[in-house]
Computed example of a mutant assay.
Amino acid sequence: MNSSTNQVYPVIWHNNAVSLIDQTRIPNEYTFVEISRSEDMAVAIKTMIVRGAPAIGVAAAYGIYLGATEIHTDNRDEFLNHLENVAEMLRSTRPTAVNLFWAISRMMKIAYETLGTVDEIKQVLFQTAQIINAEDLQTCQAIGDNGLKVLPSNPEKLTLLTHCNAGALATAGYGTALGVVRSAWREGRLARLFADETRPRLQGAKLTAWECVQEGIPVTVITDNMAAHCMKRGLIHAVVVGADRIAANGDTANKIGTYSLALVSKAHNIPFFVAAPLSTIDFSLSDGDQIPIEERDPAEIYQVGDTILTPSGAEFYNPAFDVTPAEFITGIITEKGTFAPGELRRLQEKQVV
Rank of each mutant, 00 (worst) to 15 (best):
N249R: 10
M108T: 01
L158C: 01
P298K: 09
E197Q: 08
G331F: 02
L158P: 02
P218F: 11
E120I: 05
N254L: 05
C230S: 10
A243L: 08
S92P: 07
Q348W: 14
A314C: 13
E120Y: 13
V43S: 13
V240L: 04
D244P: 01
V240I: 07
T258K: 06
V240D: 01
D244M: 06
R245K: 08
V181K: 00
R233Y: 14
V353D: 01
A238E: 03
T93S: 11
D136Y: 08
S36N: 11
N15A: 12
N16I: 08
T96S: 05
A103H: 02
E215G: 08
G175V: 03
E187L: 05
A209C: 11
Y174R: 03
V239F: 05
Q303V: 05
G144H: 05
H82M: 13
E34A: 15
E113T: 02
I64L: 01
I301K: 10
L115G: 14
A111S: 00
D119N: 15
H14D: 15
S38D: 08
T73W: 08
F194G: 02
P27W: 09
L263G: 08
D224T: 11
C164W: 07
A97G: 14
A228V: 11
T24K: 12
L148C: 10
L20V: 05
P27I: 12
F32I: 12
P155Q: 01
A228E: 13
P311W: 11
I121S: 03
G331K: 09
K206C: 10
A134D: 15
G63T: 01
A44V: 06
I293Y: 05
I222S: 06
S312F: 14
L20M: 02
L309V: 07
A320H: 04
P95H: 01
I56Y: 02
G313K: 05
S286F: 11
K149D: 14
V304I: 14
K109N: 03
I64R: 00
I45P: 07
R245Q: 07
I329A: 04
Y62K: 01
R91M: 11
E335T: 08
E187R: 11
P292I: 02
S286V: 15
A134H: 13
K109M: 02
P200Y: 11
E34Q: 13
